[in-house]
Design a protein around this nucleic acid. Sequence first.
DNA 1: ACACAAAGTTCGCGTC
DNA 2: GACGCGAACTTTGTGT
Lengths: 83, 83, 83, 83
Amino acid sequence: MTNPVSADILSQYVARVERLEEEKANIQTDLKDVYAEAKANGFDVKTMKEVVKLRKLNKDELREKEELLDLYKHALGMILEEA
Amino acid sequence: MTNPVSADILSQYVARVERLEEEKANIQTDLKDVYAEAKANGFDVKTMKEVVKLRKLNKDELREKEELLDLYKHALGMILEEA
Amino acid sequence: MTNPVSADILSQYVARVERLEEEKANIQTDLKDVYAEAKANGFDVKTMKEVVKLRKLNKDELREKEELLDLYKHALGMILEEA
Amino acid sequence: MTNPVSADILSQYVARVERLEEEKANIQTDLKDVYAEAKANGFDVKTMKEVVKLRKLNKDELREKEELLDLYKHALGMILEEA
DNA sequence: ACACAAAGTTCGCGTC
DNA sequence: GACGCGAACTTTGTGT
């Protein structure tokens, strides 16, 4: 499979990966810091995270999806109470 | 740590785990089959899965969460278009 | 999409799915319980899971997998001395 | 909760978070690209990831981990003959 | 130590 | 039939 492993090439790839993962770890630390600071100023971190998540959603996609869903919901008499 | 590993006891636990995982795998196969059958009869599998997911959500929990969020959304002038 | 949604048929499918998912959830609970019991008796759950995973692989796959890993390790000079 | 929400401050925090998450997403894309390139050159991505993970562990942790795993394997009679 | 949340891995699906 | 994409599950880390 593959071929006689070329140590040099492999090392290069691994080095690139490790470099990127280091950068990523730094950013994650920064994120943690921002949330910590916000929390120290009285904000609710959990809710902030949720807000951020919501803002990621593209409204149009969402609407399209919901329309498709409605079809099926009605078909099912989607009464949530009867779960 | 732990203790001199008791092979018998460990084997029992592993056997129980493997039995349960086998059952689980069977069920997953069944699920796949149901969806395949539904698809063959003209239903949209992706949407079906979404309906199933929605039905799992407890409506009350949802509402509570949204109220909290609204506070922050308004604070942000949560205009999704300006993302 | 598809066509005039047949509510009855769809309901049947959803019911079957939900039944299967309930069974699956039960099994997952059982699994959790087994691991909890093992842990209470001094076993290391993480290692147990690793063992279970290894047992899933047949011997040939296992050998192949380990050989490839060793190859890469050697290429990277990662083998300092073996065990 | 917390108190009269200060919209300006909150917006700043959210902006900083979103900036950092964007950077993070870029890095993840880069990582994907590196692995894709490696794959295109005949390397096994899964094994590469495994190697990278191993390189993160220091030697002591590694030894401890492997010893425990061996203990369990032996208890289950999983060691047929060593490599 | 536990529960919740994020990350990584795996699996199924649609595509080419 | 393989590849890449997206969702599901698992596992790891963190905060309480």
